[in-house]
Amino acid sequence: MWQLLAAIESHPDFSDKVLSGIHANVWTSMNSYTHAGMLQVTRRLKAGTIEPSYESKEVVEVLRAAGFFALVSMNQIAQMAGAHEVVAKVRDLLDGVTQDLSD
């Protein structure tokens, strides 16, 4: 995975290394939620029953990550469209979100 990220981030449009930041900060937990990993399984068990059992902090973490992915997608679409004002606004938003994800 790191080799693929290095190849992508060698391109000027990805030189900010956002993708490797995602990989370093949320990749493992997102895979565990997505691919029936330990996080997903343990968050479905509750004192003798099988039902959602997520802490508020965990829900916020997943929502922040989802918002981040949406902004990354929006940034790339705006770049391809040449919408420089949108790119600047999205990058400002991304700066705040990436700071939140690394905290």
Rank of each mutant, 00 (worst) to 15 (best):
R64P: 00
G82R: 04
M74R: 15
N75D: 10
T34P: 03
R44H: 06
V72F: 00
Q3I: 07
A88C: 05
S32Y: 04
R43E: 00
I50H: 04
L5S: 00
S20R: 06
A7S: 06
S53M: 10
L4G: 03
T28L: 11
L45R: 07
T98E: 09
E85D: 15
S15A: 15
M80R: 15
T34V: 07
G48Q: 08
D95Q: 10
Y33K: 06
V41L: 10
S73Y: 12
K46D: 05
E61S: 13
A78S: 15
S53R: 09
V86S: 10
T42N: 11
V72A: 00
Q79C: 11
G21I: 02
K46W: 05
E51L: 01
K57A: 15
N25S: 13
A47R: 14
I22H: 05
W2R: 13
T49S: 06
D95R: 10
A7E: 03
M74N: 09
T34W: 04
R91Q: 14
L71M: 13
E58D: 10
Y54G: 01
P52R: 07
A70Y: 10
S53Y: 11
A7L: 04
Q76D: 04
L45D: 02
M38N: 12
E9F: 02
G37I: 05
G21S: 08
P52H: 02
A88R: 12
N31T: 11
R91M: 07
S32P: 08
D103S: 15
K17H: 14
N75K: 09
H84I: 08
L93N: 05
E85L: 10
S20D: 04
D95E: 14
M74K: 14
A78P: 04
S10T: 01
A47C: 08
V60H: 06
N25M: 08
S20G: 10
S73A: 14
L71G: 02
S56T: 14
S102E: 11
E55H: 12
L71E: 06
H11A: 03
A70Q: 11
L101S: 03
S32Q: 09
K57E: 12
E51K: 04
S29C: 07
H23D: 03
G37Q: 01
R64K: 15
I22V: 15
Q76F: 07
V97Q: 08
K17Q: 14
V90P: 01
T98A: 13
L45H: 06
G21L: 03
H84R: 13
A81Y: 07
D92Q: 12
L4W: 02
H23K: 03
E55N: 10
L101Y: 01
I22A: 02
V97S: 07
K17V: 02
Y54E: 07
A6K: 13
N25G: 07
I8G: 02
Q40C: 06
V90K: 02
Q76E: 13
L94F: 00
K89V: 09
H84V: 09
D92T: 14
S56Q: 15
K17L: 10
F14A: 03
Q76S: 08
H35R: 06
F68C: 11
E51D: 05
G21F: 00
R64G: 09
W27M: 08
L93T: 03
D100Q: 15
S102A: 13
F69R: 01
R44G: 02
L5T: 01
